[in-house]
Simulated scan of single mutants.
Amino acid sequence: MTWAACGAEPAGPVSRAIFRVARLHRLLAGQLLRSFGLHAGQEVLMMRLWETGRQRQSELMRVLDQDASTLTRMVQRLEQSGFVRRCPDPGDRRSMIVEPTPAGMALRAQVTAAWEELEATTLDGLGEKERQAAERLLGRLEANLCRAVGRDQSLGAATGPAAGPVETP
Results as ranks from 00 to 15, higher is better:
152 D>A: 14
51 E>V: 03
152 D>Q: 07
134 A>M: 14
15 S>C: 05
21 V>I: 13
159 T>D: 09
131 R>A: 05
84 V>P: 00
38 L>V: 08
122 T>A: 13
61 M>L: 13
7 G>E: 05
77 R>D: 09
31 Q>S: 12
49 L>T: 02
166 V>M: 01
113 A>C: 08
131 R>T: 11
34 R>I: 06
107 L>K: 02
55 Q>D: 10
8 A>H: 06
21 V>P: 05
76 Q>H: 10
50 W>T: 01
38 L>W: 02
21 V>G: 04
13 P>L: 07
125 G>Q: 09
168 T>A: 13
100 P>C: 09
100 P>S: 08
106 A>M: 06
28 L>K: 09
104 G>I: 12
3 W>Q: 06
163 A>Q: 09
150 G>A: 14
37 G>S: 03
92 D>S: 02
148 A>M: 11
88 P>C: 04
57 Q>F: 00
48 R>D: 02
5 A>S: 12
41 G>R: 00
155 L>D: 08
93 R>E: 11
156 G>Q: 11
58 S>F: 01
121 T>H: 12
6 C>K: 04
146 C>Q: 13
133 A>G: 09
35 S>R: 11
89 D>G: 06
74 M>F: 03
105 M>H: 13
90 P>Y: 07
138 L>V: 14
30 G>K: 01
97 I>A: 01
62 R>A: 12
160 G>H: 09
137 L>A: 13
94 R>H: 15
147 R>G: 14
143 A>P: 00
70 T>N: 11
14 V>M: 12
32 L>K: 00
47 M>H: 06
155 L>A: 14
166 V>K: 00
132 Q>S: 04
166 V>L: 00
60 L>D: 08
82 G>L: 06
6 C>I: 10
69 S>D: 11
106 A>C: 08
73 R>H: 15
146 C>A: 15
14 V>P: 00
26 R>F: 07
169 P>E: 08
150 G>L: 12
78 L>N: 07
30 G>D: 11
24 L>T: 09
7 G>R: 04
17 A>I: 04
13 P>H: 07
